[in-house]
Amino acid sequence: MTATAEKTEEVGAVESFTVTLKILRHDPDGLDGREPGAEYWEEFQVEAHATDRVLDALHAIKWEQDGTLAFRRSCAHGVCGSDAMRINARNRLACKTLLKDLNPARPITVEPIKGLPVEKDLIVDMEPFFASYRDIMPFLMPSGPTPERERLQSPEDRERFDDTTKCILCAACTTSCPVFWTDGQYFGPQAIVGAHRFIFDSRDDGEWDRLEILNDQAGVWKCRTAFNCTEACPRGIEVTKAISEVKRALTSGEV
């Protein structure tokens, strides 16, 4: 039994290689003689397989080389949205990015997502991001009496906001936006995606409350269609299209 298992392992062996991860670290406490709040690059060598993701490499570093490395992750399967980071200068989920797709021959740079205050290493303060999401009231606001059974909706009506229901609040879009980098007041792509999900929902009646909020100076009109958000979204949401639809609802007055 054991012999058979060993044999299959050799036959189906996954290609393995050494990768270098260059991580932008942030030390809030100033350990090892550093200034508190010091930022520095640190390189780690990791033995990895072709099936390994950036998250696996980060685990290998934290568990086997340097336990002080701090990063967020929860489900590790691209659903919870905890491990968005800037990998090779692009926002991605560490758990959805295979090392072999990133040219492992060169060092892979890993930085915290930009535009939010860094707390430690790859962990940022997500509160400004969540505050914008709360501002657009991401909950059903129906009018009239509560029905005795489900609120029905036609497949066509459901289709209108289908794309924006995929959002996992990982902040990859908002922190890839050049407008958000320079103006933290901007709601950011994610809050607009969150609003879009309810604005175009036929069961919801709070669309004009949300549109009024997004018509603000720091709202949708800050979008300069740079398309960074659409390219960053790990869920493949057409973020710029959603923002564009909100803009059109505001200019035409029709939802």
Binding site: T225, F227, E238, T240, K241, S244, K247
Partner: peptide, 15 residues
């Protein structure tokens, strides 16, 4: 191009 992208979804998808 920006006007087209703002105006039509077709252009937005092919930006």
């Amino acid at each position: 191009r920006i006007i087209a992208v703002d105006r039509w979804t077709w252009a937005l998808r092919r930006q």
